[in-house]
Structures are given as C-alpha cells and as structure tokens.
Design a protein around this nucleic acid. Structure first.
Lengths: 277, 277
DNA sequence: GAATACCCCCAGTAATTCTATGCCTGTATA
DNA sequence: TATACAGGCATAGAATTACTGGGGGTATTC
C-alpha cells in the first residue's frame, strides 16, 4: 500500500528524491518501499542508472492505472472532506504570498463569507491538488490557472532611504535585500534597467522577513508587485525608480478539476476580484 | 489510508464485524480506524445502533467514489502482478475443494501447461476478486459464475461398512460423519430420502478430514458429489443408497471481470472441461 | 430471561515505516 | 587528472502506527 504510493510517485516524478519530496519522507524510505514492491511482485520496476532511475517495461505498463487509481482516491477523499464540512476551505500558498497577499485580504473575506472557515497552509511548492486535501492554491505559475496579477519586480525601500537613490548606479552603495529562492530578481531587474552595476546585500529565506527589514530602512528590496503594493499604497515603502521588469509568470489561483463548490466559487471570486488592491 | 480501507469495507458490507472479517483484523481495529477517520474529517460516517451501524448521509455520499477508487487500485495491482510474472496464477478455493477436487487435477494441468506456476490458497470465504490478488476462485456459489458441477449430496462409506446398511433407518446405528460448516447436509438428505430417523456422529472442521475417516471405515459420511467422486470411481468409497439430494448451489470457477489472460483462459478451460472426472 | 450479535473503550504489544548514516557509482567541473 | 556532486543502496535503531485482547453495554431473538 505504502509501497504502491512510493512507486507511483517515483515513477510519475522520475526519481526517488523527487518522490520523497512529494511524500514528505527521505529518499531512503522511498527506495525501501520500491524495493519491497519489486520483491513482492517479482519483477524490476525501475532500471537503476547512475544518474537516477528509469521505469522498466513493467513499470511503464502499470503506471497509468496506478496513477488513475490514486487520483480517484484523492478525489474521493476530497469529496469526503467537503461532504463532512462544506464550509471548511483549506488554502495552500507560498509563504510570502500567504503572509503578504492573502493574510491582509482574509479579514474582509471572512466578514463577507461568515459561514466559511478558511485555513491557510504555507508551502514552498504547489501541492498536487489531486492528492493533497487542499481546496485552493495561490502560487506563482505559468498562467495556466486563474490569474490574479502578472509578477512584476522593481526596487522598493523606506522613504527616508529613497533620498540616497538618484540613479540606478546608487544601488551599489546601499544594501540590496533579496530572497534566497528568488536570487535572480536583482540581475533581471538590473538588466531591464540597462544598468551594469553590481548590487549586494543580505539574503533572506523568507520574503516577508525581507519586506519587514525594508520597512525598517535596512536597505533596498527587490519588490514583487502583488506583495508590496499594500505598503506602496500606505506610503510605508516607495519605488525610487520607474523601471519595472515583468516576469513570465502570474500569481494565480488553482482549484481542483471538476465542479467548484459554491463556497469555493465565492472565495475565488473575492480573491480574484480584489487583485487591484 | 488504512482508515479509508476500513471505512469502505465497513460501509460496503454493512458492519464492522464483517469488514474485520474481510480485512483479516479484529472488529476493534476497524472501529478504531473508522473513529479516527470520523475525527479527521469532522463528521459522523455511521450512526451507531444497538444492532449494528448504518451509514450516515455523509457516508452514503462518499461510499461510491471510495469503492470505485479501491477497485481501481485492486485492478492496478492485479495488472502489476500479471505484467511482472505473466505465468504465475494464484487460485483461491474452499479447503475441501482445494484438497479433494483441485489438488488431484493439478498434476495433469501442470503437465499440460508447463509454463504456468499455479499456487493454491485455501480460504473459508470467497475473496473479493476486485481487491485480493487472486486470479481464480473455486467455491460453491449460486450459479452466477462458470459452473463446474451441481452440488449433490448422498451418504458414502467404506465398502466393509456398506453391508450394515440395508435401509436408511440403519443409519441411526452407525456414526454419521459431517462437516461443521455443512451441518445441514444430513437433515437435508434425510428429508429428501423421506426418512424420519435421527443420525449422529463426529463433526469435523475440515471436510477432507471427514473423508479420510470415512475411507478408514470410521462411519458414514454425507458426501458431496464433486469431492468424493474420485473415491467412488476407485471403489474406496461406495454409496449405499440411491437417493441423491441436489443442493441449490454449484461448484464454480470465478475470475476477475474483464479480459481473461491466455494462461487463465487455458486453466479455466482445463478445470471446467474435466468436470466429469 | 438467557443467549446472541453487535459495537465501545482502553492498555499493552506487535508490526510497520522512517531516519540517519556511511558507501558506491557515474557525471560534471576545475 | 583530480575533485566535487547528485542520486541510489544498505543497515540498524528509533518512532510511529496499527492490532490484539480484555471488559462492558445495549438492543433483538428464541
């Protein structure tokens, strides 16, 4: 059973490490389960190569059925959760999105939809909606989902720091904050701005933390439109330069395939409709 | 996961005890799993009544999807086993059938189909083919499957004992062997024979054991046609009376729904074709 | 009014699964 | 050519999970 899950994930994702990631276990655990399954059925499911594993013929043959079965199981579990407590919604979002975009909107949404109980989980990677018990996701994606806003980046900083920034080249003289997983943001924007200057500064593992530091005047942050607009509106942050770089990705809402339940439809409408905030 | 299995079985079979039976665990284990699932999803899946449990509205709603998902999983596992080792067949049969009917036929079948590796498991109850990894079952059923022979019962005994049996009433004077799960055999046959006589004798939990005892002259056994015909042919047992009671059930072969693999087709043809033996 | 057939609860135990570690192999980098 | 690195293997011990076995309760059945 567990072995089937491990095999399905490894086969679908093409590696034990990735499967381990999805299943939230160590690669060793996946390897063990796959090996147990191979012993049970008496045939090799993968060919082991130095650079990873590739599906054997038997594996190729059984993967579609297995994937379909697990998807059906995931759908049944989702149906169970919804039938049990129709007003409960569970949203998964990138930590930065959850804290900087979703969280400020929740009070108004909870007031508008008082019968809903909305839970939020912060995840680094978008979950597999067909398997995990989430009702909605808010992540940056390639535009396949329900788009909220294009991701645009531009430097932002506390107002008192903006006086030091006359030209783009002045950035070399101040700390330039950035996020670890979005390490390319500064180079991309600098290229867009046509600047040759090298910038440097502290790197944060949590974007919200970098925003916090920028609010306190710790440096210039490379801001993401949707995540800093609130502070731009309030004046707590300002954008010292006019140049904006558009990234090829959108902040978007994802829902399970199939019929949207009324509460889910109401929530997604509220979230998508307020994109201009 | 385990909880989903437990719930599905309990809901489908209408009781924790029956589910426990199918899953080969104690009823307490099923109750625990179902309770855990109810706590996880936050709604009652069953209504507890004194005479058992009945599905709640939520339970009714999610059962079909869950059953379908588990069936799909079972089918995928079956596909895996077959793809891994196409020549391996696993037959489930009633212990008596396995020992007295199937086992004598296997040598000839193995000779005819040398590429097949045929395993046999003795089970008291027919397994759920959609879930358990069996390729074929041989049980007594109501005629829905591939019938082999109608179940007929009649007394049989060792030849030296037959001399003591002039009339049906003489049965009261000799030990009348019977099987624990087929306790009604003697009353049914006696009613068919129109006799008022009361018979008694040792009861066996294993029909094959009762046959063995009858061969040794320990008493008169209520014989099942398919299970004693071999000994009647060899003369090791004789039927002292002409009356035969036909039971409303047939010895029959069951296979998974869908396409029969060539090895399975060959095996079922051999087994069904040799029913006259 | 016993016997039966269910299910509930709890504590201890048994089984499974996971982590942690060191090792190996082939690829990519310097 | 040397060196890091990514991915998988193997084992033992640890943690989690699931199961058993006991006692108890409540309706139906004969």
């Amino acid at each position: 059973m567990t072995a089937l899950r491990a095999f399905e994930a490894a086969a679908r994702l093409g590696g034990f490490a990735r499967a381990a990631d999805e299943l939230c276990v160590t690669p060793g655990a996946v390897a063990q389960q796959v090996k147990a399954l191979e012993e049970w059925c008496g045939a090799a499911l993968f060919e082991r190569r130095a650079q990873g594993v590739v599906l054997s013929w038997v594996g190729v043959r059984v993967l579609p059925g297995l994937t379909g079965a697990f998807d059906a199981l995931g759908a049944a579990v989702g149906e169970l959760r919804q039938a049990a407590l129709p007003g409960r919604l569970h949203v998964a979002a990138l930590p930065a999105v959850a804290q900087l975009w979703l969280s400020p909107r929740l009070p108004a949404i909870r007031a508008a939809l008082p019968d809903l109980e909305i839970s939020v989980s912060a995840l680094e990677q978008p979950p597999n909606m067909a398997r995990e018990p989430f009702d909605m996701t808010v992540f940056y994606g390639d535009g396949a989902g329900l788009g909220i806003a294009r991701d645009v980046i531009f430097p932002v900083c506390a107002p008192q720091l903006a006086g030091q920034l006359e030209t783009v080249e002045d950035l070399a003289a101040v700390p330039c904050l950035s996020d670890a997983v979005w390490a390319q943001d500064w180079p991309i924007w600098l290229a867009e701005a046509g600047a040759e200057v090298q910038v440097s500064g502290p790197v944060y593992s949590l974007y919200a933390l970098a925003v916090e530091e920028a609010l306190h005047g710790a440096g210039v942050l490379i801001g993401h439109g949707a995540l800093v607009s609130r502070h731009l509106d309030s004046g707590a942050l300002v954008a010292p330069f006019g140049t904006r770089a558009e990234l090829p990705r959108w902040l978007e809402i994802g829902v399970r395939d199939g019929a949207l339940s009324p509460p889910l439809r109401a929530l997604s409408r509220l979230l998508a409709g307020k994109s201009s905030l």
